[in-house]
Design a protein around this nucleic acid. Structure first.
Length: 283
DNA sequence: CGTTTTTGACCGGCGC
DNA sequence: GCGCCGGTCAAAAACG
């Protein structure tokens, strides 16, 4: 199963690399509320999901985008607060990145850096890193695609040896899945902007999990705004391992109790098996 | 010497 | 068709 998934990933990402599509700029929008966290030295907010255009209401253009997103890799937006004096635009997430470009965009005088994953030669993941206009100490990293290899090292979140690190991490899952940021506290984020992407067959099970995960979260709403408002109160607690363990257990419980998830999982697995058997021509 | 970073040039999509 | 703009390329420089 995993083998199959990985090969599917490779195909999908490769095709996505060939079709570049311009996406709406959302970095400043996303990182706006993070400014409320200025009292914390190291902060990190993560938004998992599609590119910013994934809203719940634009059904008009969804048909066009369906195809596009079918090709496109998943997009993960990460905003983290770093030391203001740290101008390196380096986000230590446990992977090895190679910078291949830098550009000053129109809407932000701060240069945007482009990175590729250099650990695995065939790894399709790309990353864009840019500081926000509002708060130059906040760095927004946009990940595209999924790693087809494990992390090269532990991400420096919390236990920092260098300057640019984050001690707190908030994850919002909109759609799709990513394992690039192992620390996940979705309780205070997640929200109504969930986009059920039926065009990405490889992530059916995980997406459902994320969906359930989101629905079981006590708070919905705009992810970052919620995150920033709760940072001063619940941030420490969310970072504690027992809390994360609790979250994981909650997720597992909700998933195993949900018959629709079981059905989706079974359908996905059987579908994959049948598909593979058809390809090999043995059935 | 191999790898990574820098940086101007180039490419292609999009709006007018 | 043209210009703008984001993203990528690739040669040179820097680095370990």
């Amino acid at each position: 199963m995993m083998e199959y998934m990985s090969t599917q990933n490779g195909v999908a990402e490769d095709s996505s690399a060939g079709s570049r599509k311009r996406k709406a700029e959302s970095i400043s929008n996303i990182s706006n509320p993070v400014n409320n966290n200025n009292n914390n030295n190291n902060n990190m907010d993560v938004v998992h999901g599609r590119s910013s255009e994934s809203s719940s209401s634009d059904e008009e253009s969804c048909c066009k985008k369906l195809r596009e997103e079918h090709i496109k890799a998943k997009v993960t937006i990460v905003s983290m607060k770093t030391d203001a004096s740290d101008t390196s635009l380096i986000v230590k997430d446990g992977y090895q990145w190679r910078k291949y470009g830098q550009k000053v965009t129109r809407d932000n005088p701060c240069p945007r850096a482009y990175f590729r994953c250099s650990f695995a030669p065939g790894c399709p993941v790309k990353k864009k890193v840019q500081r926000t206009i509002e708060d130059q100490s906040i760095v927004v990293a946009t990940y595209e695609g999924e790693h087809n290899h494990p992390q090269t090292s532990k991400p420096e979140l919390g236990a920092s040896t260098n300057t640019s690190t984050a001690s707190r991490l908030n994850v919002t899952t909109i759609a799709g899945t990513t394992t690039s940021v192992p620390c996940s506290t979705t309780l205070n984020s997640s929200g109504p902007t969930i986009t059920l992407d039926l065009t990405a067959p490889k992530t059916v099970e995980k997406r459902d999990m994320k969906m359930n995960h989101s629905t079981t979260s006590p708070t919905g709403g705009n992810s970052i705004r919620t995150a920033s408002s709760t940072t001063t109160t619940g941030g420490e607690y969310q970072n504690r391992p027992e809390f994360q363990q609790f979250l994981i257990e909650q997720m597992a419980t909700s998933l195993t109790k949900d018959p629709s998830f079981k059905a989706a999982l079974a359908a996905a697995i059987s579908g994959k098996i049948l598909q593979q058997n058809n390809q090999t021509g043995r059935w």
